[in-house]
Structures are given as structure tokens and as C-alpha cells.
């Protein structure tokens, strides 16, 4: 058995620049609806991976969509292969956390995203248990990061591989939404 990774989180003095956005459950569905109103040009500036109930998009800050309930992720300069919430700073430092996560989940190709889907969401729906996730790229980490000071910082953490992130295409978004 692999030992747990004990991680504590605190608020960052300087938030990371957002380079990815994550959404789960109904928020992910609404995010796709919003994306479908974007032009093809705007869509191709974003790359993404999707599980049955989770969506993670990467792109330039100014291109990332906003919706109530999404979570923004950024990369600590010391851990460029790990996307973490822009407002949180892990201990041990991000570089060590990245290394530990890659050791625990060698099946997930980097870069990785650690999505918290935290209580900060303004969507009450997000607090429901997530549906089972069978997609290869969205698996729970072997050991969830915990915060000894504030248990609401990380709720239902998930580790996602962004290695297969591809430019967004309208047809795939529609298929993900179950539209013809």
C-alpha cells in the first residue's frame, strides 16, 4: 500500500495566473453550452480534456471562459507540470507535490491538473457526490490532499492528465453534451 501524501494548503499571497479552468457536474454542462456560443476561432484557442462529469480546459488567461462555479488553475513556476488552484499554495512546495503525485499515479501522463471542486463554488449542485468516473484521464489521486487548517479548501480532489488535451471542436462538445 502506498503511504498517504499529507498536504496542507494555504491562501497564496500572490495568486497564480489562470492557465486552465475546471468544471464538474451541471456546471460543466452549462460551461459547454456557453462554449457552444463561442466562435470557432475562440474555441480553437482552448484545449481540453473531458470525463463524464468533468471538464478541464487550458489556454491563455484572457481566453478562458467564466461561469459561476468553475475553478481556475495555474502553474507554480517551480512545478510547471502541475496545474493547481490559482489561489492556493501547497505544503510541501508545489515541486515536491508534483513529483509525489507523478510517482503515485505513473499511469497519468503529465501535465497533471489537481482539481479541488472546493466548497468555494457558489453552485450548491457541486456539493453532491460525483457520479462514477471511468474516463482514463480523470481519476482520483491515490491519496487526496488534505488541509489540516481548513477542510473546505480541498473537497473531492481529482487528479487529471492533460496530456491528451486537444483544441476544442464544436462537434465533440456537442457529442459530450449528448446532442446530435
Amino acid at each position: 500500500m502506498t503511504a498517504a501524501i499529507h498536504v496542507t494548503w494555504r491562501t497564496r499571497a500572490v495568486p497564480l495566473s489562470p492557465q486552465a479552468v475546471a468544471a464538474a457536474g451541471p456546471v460543466a454542462a452549462r460551461l459547454v453550452d456557453r462554449l457552444l456560443t463561442f466562435t470557432d476561432d475562440a474555441l480553437t484557442r482552448l484545449r481540453g480534456v473531458a470525463g463524464p462529469d468533468l471538464l478541464v480546459l487550458t489556454g491563455e488567461s484572457a481566453d478562458l471562459p467564466w461561469l459561476d462555479g468553475v475553478e481556475y488553475l495555474g502553474r507554480d513556476p517551480l512545478a510547471p507540470g502541475l496545474y493547481i488552484p490559482t489561489t492556493l499554495e501547497p505544503a510541501p512546495v508545489a515541486a515536491l507535490l508534483e513529483r509525489a503525485l507523478r510517482q503515485r499515479a505513473p499511469q497519468l501522463a503529465p501535465p497533471l491538473a489537481l482539481v479541488s471542486l472546493a466548497e468555494k463554488s457558489h453552485e450548491s449542485d457541486l456539493h453532491r457526490p460525483a457520479p462514477g468516473d471511468s474516463h482514463d484521464s480523470t481519476r482520483p489521486p491515490s491519496s487526496p490532499p488534505r488541509d489540516s487548517h481548513d477542510s473546505t479548501l480541498f473537497v473531492r480532489p481529482r487528479l487529471v492528465s492533460l496530456a491528451d488535451a486537444r483544441p476544442l471542436v464544436r462537434a465533440r462538445l456537442r457529442a459530450w453534451r449528448g446532442l446530435a
Binding site: 475553478e71 481556475y72 473546505t152
Partner: peptide
Amino acid sequence: EALAREIDASFRAEE
């Protein structure tokens, strides 16, 4: 949306 993004990327909801 850009302003809302800046808010959400800069501040934790509790703070």
C-alpha cells in the same frame, strides 16, 4: 466575464 474570472482566480470565496 473577464472581471468575474479575475475575481475567481484571485480570491478564495471565503476571503
